[in-house]
Amino acid sequence: MEQFGIWLAALLTIGIISFLYKDNILYKACEAIFVGVSAGYWFVTYFWDNLYRKFYLGIQGAELSDQIFLWMAVALGVMMLTRLFDKIGWLSRWPLAFIIGATAGLYMMTYFVSNAFVQIGATITPPPSMETIGDKISFVLIAIGTFCGLIYFFFSKEHKGAFGGAAKVGIWFLMVTFGASFGYTVMSRMSLMLGRFDFLFGEWLGLIK
């Protein structure tokens, strides 16, 4: 059984890699298996984790207010299914509106605090070691870069003259950031493929001990 599992995994691995050459029957088969099996897997996970554990077990012995709360969630879920019926399909917009309103409200504050507020605070907070001239230059450079980056994102003014110049410096800083992220990721991506080759030539074919 274990050998069967390894062979299956090896065939699926080869099938996916073969896409790099071109779309082919093996890749199509892998894709079809992947979509069908994973969709089923996720539904099973949702069912047992959310509907059974969070809802069904949640209402067992819970206080009335908690029970009502959970039943309200189920009611919204059921409203979602009204889409299947033309005449009352518009009811499905209610849970959708609830989700959109809640996401907008919740994340508006979260992003405002964690992104805008905290980052401004971090930019003006001197590092613990601001002793060498290099530390001071870095501190000011980060502030200049952040400032110019914000100018680049300014919508109300055309990027012309000195303002345009600052926006240009802003985009240079953004490019350094993108380059840094890019360079940082390249190596780790290479190791992923080495991992798959290790499986094929080691675990499957036994060529690497």
Partner: peptide, 28 residues
């Protein structure tokens, strides 16, 4: 990584924070 990269990251993050505020308000 600790200077120029940080500056770019921060300008993106601050912008995103403000962008989310405006978009959320438009939806709400």
């Amino acid at each position: 990584m600790n200077s120029a990269n940080l500056a770019g990251q921060r300008s993106i993050l601050i912008g995103v924070g403000l962008g989310v505020v405006a978009m959320s308000l438009r939806l709400i």
